[in-house]
């Protein structure tokens, strides 16, 4: 089949992926606040209620625990619910349902009950928003066994990963980097670029490996570009999956470069980045020329948006760590 490629933004790519999933399997349902007529506050579900009806694309009452709890019941009944949480900071009313029920039902029933539930969460900062609208809470979920956690960084991954997440028989926390909803990128509608849980090399290099996910990937690519102009060759990896983590490409890259910087918007303490740093230190100790370094948001609440740029790791902060790694 010939490649059918189109330049579209991530929000539209996710919309196309959701449409394809709804069309392919009538058990797929979308549920969330304002996802119907409004099309979601980020317009990711735009037009889908009109196309598939109010039974398949459901504007729920305003209750996140209710959304996830009823999605669990629907999954028990054979449906494949895709829940939208309106903003990162509003997932916590559903935390109990996600961590004590959704994550554990399969093991509780010795595999008799599967939970093909996807929870979509717009996350991350850079958009000048008020409190609870810019957080990166992915570590809470990666910490919980029984959940799969992924985050697409490009429109192409958005289109494919959402369909793969919906096809999974396990619960998937699907973190959408909201600052990346609007920039366009190519989507190849003919085939997926990689499997749902694979780490991808998005730029090859030889001196230092940097790895990140979601909106951070664009920052890493910008940093690699600046470094290249200064003669430093950086390899950039997009994690894509935060649980499980696909370590093989990371270890292969570190074997080549000997240096690793792990970057994330989230607070650094007890984070996904910490887990990766520890694992690479364990498994690639003899390849390392310098300690694995982390660049993260500070271990503080997300600050008022006028100073968010000082909180969020930018290309300069990534390069500062790269310099430290190289100076070893």
């Amino acid at each position: 089949m010939a490649a059918v490629t189109e330049e579209i933004p991530l929000a539209k790519a996710l919309n196309a992926g959701l449409r394809a999933a709804l069309a392919a399997d009538e058990k797929v349902l979308l549920m969330g606040e304002d996802i119907g007529k409004l099309g979601g506050v980020f317009r990711v579900t735009e037009g889908l209620q009109e196309e598939f009806g109010t039974r398949r694309v459901i504007d729920t009452p305003l209750a996140e625990s209710g959304i996830v709890g009823t999605a669990i019941g629907l999954a028990m009944r054979g449906y494949r619910p895709v829940c939208e949480i309106q903003f990162d900071g509003f997932i916590f009313p559903a935390f109990d349902q996600i961590t004590t029920q959704l994550a554990k039902l399969t093991s509780r029933t010795a595999g008799a009950v599967q939970m093909p539930v996807v929870i979509r969460v717009p996350y991350g900062g850079h958009i000048g928003a008020v409190e609870h609208h810019q957080e990166s809470p992915e570590a809470y979920f990666a910490h919980t066994a029984g959940l799969r956690v992924v985050s697409p960084s490009t429109p192409n991954d958005g289109y494919w990963m959402i369909q793969e997440a919906i096809a999974s028989n396990d619960p998937v926390l699907f973190f959408e980097p909201k600052s990346r909803y609007w920039p366009k990128g190519p989507v190849d509608f003919s085939r997926s670029a990689a499997e749902l849980h694979s780490t991808r090399v998005v730029r090859t290099g030889t001196d230092v490996t940097i790895v990140g996910h979601g909106a951070m990937v664009a920052t890493l690519l910008a940093a690699a570009q600046v470094a290249a102009e200064e003669g430093v060759s950086i390899e950039v990896l997009d994690l894509r999956s935060l649980s499980p983590v696909d370590y093989a490409p990371i270890l292969a890259s570190v074997e080549k470069t000997g240096r690793l910087v792990v970057c994330q918007e989230a607070t650094g303490f007890a984070s996904v980045g910490s887990e990766i740093a520890a694992t690479v230190a364990e498994r690639a100790f003899y390849s390392l020329e310098s300690p694995v370094l982390r660049v993260s948001g500070f271990d503080t609440p997300y600050p008022p948006s006028k100073i968010e740029s000082f909180y969020l790791p930018d290309a300069d902060r990534v390069l500062e760590a790269v310099d430290r790694a190289l100076a070893y």
Binding site: F298, D299, T300, P301, P303, K306, I307, F310, Y311
Partner: peptide
């Protein structure tokens, strides 16, 4: 105007905290 950058770390805790001071 924007707040001082120290606002990121101030008042996260009500008592001195080593991580805030360090960061």
């Amino acid at each position: 105007g924007p707040p001082a950058l120290s606002a990121i770390f101030e008042n996260v805790y009500s008592e001195p905290h080593p991580v805030m001071a360090e960061q």
